[in-house]
């Protein structure tokens, strides 16, 4: 499988990365080189093999459903480019 210029533009939109028209051809070439390299996975007989979900055998731990953390909104927004009254500020999304 390989990608064309339109697919590169579409992936850029899905990934929320602006790709300029000048960059499209270079990304197309590089992504196809990598996809070409991973193509060899098609040779492997994976019949009846379970996909890995955890690299070490473990059960996901559970804990009581109680609040154990929080109460420091000012720390949460401390690194925000723009914040006001402990809220993150973004461009208007709803009219």
């Amino acid at each position: 499988m390989s990608v064309d210029a339109d697919t590169v533009r579409r992936i850029g939109r899905l990934a929320r990365i602006r790709i300029t028209e000048e960059e499209v051809a270079a990304f197309e070439g590089e992504i196809n080189a990598i996809l070409g390299f991973v193509e060899q996975l098609g040779e492997v007989d994976i019949e009846g093999v379970e996909p890995m979900t955890s690299v070490t055998p473990m059960q996901l731990r559970r804990r009581d459903d109680t609040v154990t953390d929080g109460g420091y909104a000012e720390q949460i927004v401390a690194n925000a480019p723009i914040s006001e009254d402990n809220f993150f500020m973004v461009p208007k999304v709803v009219e």
Partner: peptide, 27 residues
């Protein structure tokens, strides 16, 4: 480049062909 490759292999229609296959190979 890596974020775009990742976005592509997880996108509708390619997930099984790339991601699930790679996780089986990992097993």
């Amino acid at each position: 480049r890596r974020v775009m490759i990742g976005t592509y292999v997880l996108s509708a229609g390619y997930y099984d062909a790339y991601y699930v296959r790679a996780q089986k190979v990992r097993t």
